[in-house]
Write a protein that binds this DNA or RNA. Structure first.
Length: 350
DNA sequence: CAACCGTGGGG
DNA sequence: TCCCCAAGGTT
């Protein structure tokens, strides 16, 4: 099959079956596509949609982002994960304002220099928004190509990665690049599923090597599974009336710049810290522990509740602590476990 | 360059 | 329940 036929099959399929009504497809400006592409990194469409709508409503353009605070951006990102993406969007808004007069750049070398934008995302932004000729290589495209061409290997293999880039550069058409790229992602997300692909409705099944060999499970080869370490964290919920004490994660790598309860990897450290702050540790109440799974480790969270009868002053470097008001929540970034604890607290479960 | 960076959901 | 995966990029 010629390359022309490959891209033509994909584009023809797109005209009938492709997704054209996603929230970021109504007005495909560089800004809209940029935000959506960042949100969609390693995240499903279903999860992204409500976050995207809320984000665009609050930040309709680069200027609004530039005039905002990082806390406000992280507030709208809370629960979505991979918070570096939000920090990079904020950084990018500053860069775009300073370097490009507030207008999102439209040439590849400028776009890819922005933090959080790699080769594939840069290509996606420019092709989906402006129909520029740039190939992409996301998880969807990788899976479609690796099956269609019957490539033996793991997605983590650098050589496979390079080979796939070479192929996507060849199959991507010069015209209708935007439609083609969208179609490849649609086929990957709706048909060429990781598990149980729907080959019977796939426009590429006729010459797909994985389909012909009846071995889609082997494309791509599965990675050897890793054992994830287990870590523990004691969350100290210091309560005064309707407020809880929180501190911004500065030095911690995880949940950086988000707010969290003072946390310690052992109960002893938590108790010592409380004693340092002259808080009576005889009255604290243990709350049911729960597990939070990350992509690379498992965290056992042990919340302990310490009600105060009078408000204490805490010192935190750079004034990055605050009394979180449950009745009038500050706009700050919160991780999922912290959000869950706050919800339970509001429901009076503790 | 392998490890790091979150979270939700499907099978 | 458990395991794997999902529109990646950075260090």
């Amino acid at each position: 099959m010629t390359i022309y036929n490959f891209s033509q099959l994909v584009i023809n399929w797109y005209h009938i079956n492709g997704r054209k009504d996603l929230p970021w497809q109504k007005n495909k400006t560089l800004y809209i596509i940029w935000i959506s592409e960042i949100m969609l990194q390693q995240t499903t469409v279903k999860t992204v949609i409500p976050y995207f709508k809320k984000f665009i409503l609050n930040f309709p353009n680069i200027e609004s982002l530039n005039n905002s605070s990082l806390d406000e951006v992280l507030y709208l990102w809370s629960g979505l994960g991979y918070y570096n993406r939000a920090r990079n969007i904020y950084k990018s808004a500053k860069i775009i304002t300073a370097k490009y007069y507030g207008i999102f750049p439209s040439n590849f070398s400028d776009v890819i220099k922005l933090p959080g934008i790699g080769k594939s995302t840069a290509g996606a932004i420019l092709s989906l928004s402006l129909n520029f000729f740039f190939p992409i290589l996301d998880g969807n495209v990788k899976r479609v190509l690796i099956r269609y061409y019957g490539i033996i290997g793991s997605l983590k293999d650098r050589i496979i990665e390079k080979k796939l880039w070479h192929i996507t550069e060849i199959v991507t058409p010069i015209h209708n690049t935007g439609k083609f790229n969208q179609a490849m992602m649609d086929i990957g997300a709706l048909i060429c599923l990781a598990k149980k692909p729907k080959c019977e409705i796939c426009p590429l099944s006729k010459r797909c090597i994985a389909k012909i060999k009846q071995k889609w499970e082997n494309y791509p080869l599965k990675n050897t599974k890793k054992i994830y370490p287990i870590k523990t964290s004691w969350f100290t919920l210091i309560q005064f009336n309707n407020t809880l004490w929180m501190e911004k994660n500065i030095e911690k790598k995880i949940w950086k710049n988000l707010f969290c309860f003072p946390s310690f990897d052992t109960e002893e450290k938590a108790l010592n810290w409380l004693k340092e702050k002259k808080i009576n540790t005889n009255t604290y109440k243990k709350i049911k522990p729960f597990i939070h799974k990350f992509s690379h480790f498992i965290l056992y969270i042990y919340p302990i509740l310490i009600p105060l009868s009078s408000c204490l002053k805490f010192c935190k470097k750079n004034n990055t602590g605050l009394w979180y008001d449950l009745k009038k929540p500050q706009h700050i970034g919160l991780s999922k476990p912290v959000q869950k604890i706050l919800e339970n607290f509001k429901k009076n479960i503790f």
